[in-house]
Simulated scan of single mutants.
Amino acid sequence: MIRHLVLFKLNEGVERDDPRVVEGARAFQALGGRIDELRFWECGWNISDRPIAYDFAINSAVDDAEALVRYLEHPEHQAGVALWREFATWVIADYEV
């Protein structure tokens, strides 16, 4: 099993209620039930106000490296990434569990 973690930081001046952000969050929230490779899916807004905190997180899992590639290349995942690219940056970690 591979755990796929993503932490998003909204760009300077972009707020959570920005329509683009709302659409991006909805797109990612819907992925859990739409991509067969996902064995676990959760995402949500950070509740911490610490200066080093990121804004939005995805915590997911897939069976193996091939499933991770299929997930990453899935059209709905790519559509969500395209939305977020307009208003955020992110970091990822993929590790075996």
Rank of each mutant, 00 (worst) to 15 (best):
F8N: 03
V97P: 14
D94T: 07
I92G: 15
R39G: 01
V97R: 09
R34N: 05
V91P: 09
L83S: 04
A25T: 10
P75R: 01
D64R: 12
S60M: 10
W45N: 00
R39P: 02
L83T: 01
P75I: 04
D64F: 11
L68F: 02
R26E: 12
E42V: 08
Q78A: 11
A25S: 02
A27I: 05
W45H: 07
A61K: 15
W45A: 00
G44H: 00
D55N: 13
P51S: 02
V97G: 03
P19N: 06
Y71A: 11
A30V: 00
N11S: 14
E42I: 11
F28V: 09
A27K: 08
G80I: 01
I47H: 15
A67Q: 15
H74R: 09
R16W: 05
A88K: 06
I58P: 01
R50Q: 09
V62K: 08
E23Q: 04
Q78Y: 10
L72H: 11
F56K: 00
A27G: 07
C43W: 07
L72R: 12
E66A: 14
C43P: 04
W41I: 02
I35G: 13
G33Q: 07
A30Y: 06
G24K: 02
A25G: 00
Y95A: 03
L10M: 02
E23P: 04
D18C: 01
A79D: 01
E96N: 10
Q29W: 13
V22D: 03
A65Y: 09
S48L: 12
F87C: 00
W90R: 07
D55C: 06
Y95E: 00
P75S: 03
A88Q: 05
E37V: 03
A67Y: 14
P75F: 04
L7T: 08
L72F: 11
T89Q: 04
D94R: 08
E12M: 07
Q29E: 15
